[in-house]
């Protein structure tokens, strides 16, 4: 893997032209049918989802959508979903369960949108109930962090049996800029924050937050997308196949997330 600082990876993860959810759907799946709307209020294009075939098997596929042009960026709110996006995701996940389809998600968002209407319609509740629902899905779920994994808005699509991450993707509790501004009241120190936060794929593999790192071309995913689609495809198939044989997918997923920061094993319990 290429030798880069965390700050350089943050820049690559955000880079325009980096393959996004729509690209992965187009190259890894066939017969994609997009399902729109949350059936409550509106359609949120910042989450793209539907049904498709993966190696001939129907799957539910979902991911954040940032858009390719400025116009698309604006329509997709730069990949920052509102509550409607998460409620659409829930609707699709419930259908996946009903029709016994595996769920595959692609994560690429700066975070859930911090806006007035998003709050009025229950952004917190929407994320919380998506986390709860996804945690208990009885079908297999695989998540791939492809770009920016920003906070709860990313995690809402990330409670999966296997979590994979591209080499230059990042995944964190909030943006390095936000982190620096909270801790040091200085968002310009984001480079320093990025190093401290342990947000790179290699760090997260070590912490047990992700299960595998998918290598990228030397200069980043945007330089040779075809190679990236092949690598993601290979990793996805390799992690999905064994999950199809698991009887208790929900139990498997529960144990995985139950162990995150479980203190009994760390020997730190008790002062």
């Amino acid at each position: 893997m290429a030798d880069r600082t965390a700050e350089q990876r943050v820049a690559l993860a955000r880079r325009a032209g980096r393959p996004g959810t729509a690209d992965y759907i187009a190259h890894l799946f066939t017969d994609f049918f997009e399902c729109r709307g949350d059936r409550l209020c509106r359609e949120d294009p910042s989450i793209l989802g539907g049904v498709a075939l993966y190696y001939g098997r129907p799957v539910t596929v979902l991911g954040h959508r940032k858009g390719k042009s400025l116009e698309e960026n604006l329509t997709c709110n730069f990949g920052m979903p509102g509550p409607e996006g998460y409620r659409k995701a829930q609707r699709l996940m419930k259908q996946a369960e009903k029709f016994r389809r595996p769920v595959i998600t692609f994560i690429d968002t700066p975070g859930a949108y911090p806006g007035l209407e998003a709050e009025a319609r229950g952004q917190g509740e929407a994320i919380a109930s998506t986390l709860a629902l996804m945690s208990a899905l009885t079908v297999p779920a695989v998540a791939v962090v492809t770009g920016e994994g920003g906070s709860g808005g990313a995690l809402a699509l990330g409670v999966a049996n296997a979590v994979l991450m591209l080499e230059n993707a990042v995944y964190s509790v909030l943006s390095p800029e936000g982190f620096a501004s909270i801790l040091w009241k200085d968002s310009a120190r984001s480079g320093e924050a990025a190093e401290l936060m342990k947000l790179t794929a290699a760090d997260l593999l070590e912490l047990g937050v992700v299960d595998a790192v998918i290598p990228e071309p030397e200069e980043g995913a945007h330089t040779a997308p075809e190679a990236v689609y092949a690598a993601v495809d290979q990793a996805l198939a390799a992690h999905l196949t064994p999950l199809l044989k698991i009887r208790d997918c929900a139990g498997h997923r529960y144990q995985k997330f139950r162990a995150m920061g479980a203190l009994a094993a760390s020997g730190r319990e008790g002062l």
């Binding site: 964190s172 947000l199 997330f257 995150m260």
Partner: peptide
């Protein structure tokens, strides 16, 4: 950091 985020899922 990220371990804090994972508590939401847990």
């Amino acid at each position: 950091g990220i371990l804090s985020l994972m508590q939401m899922a847990k």
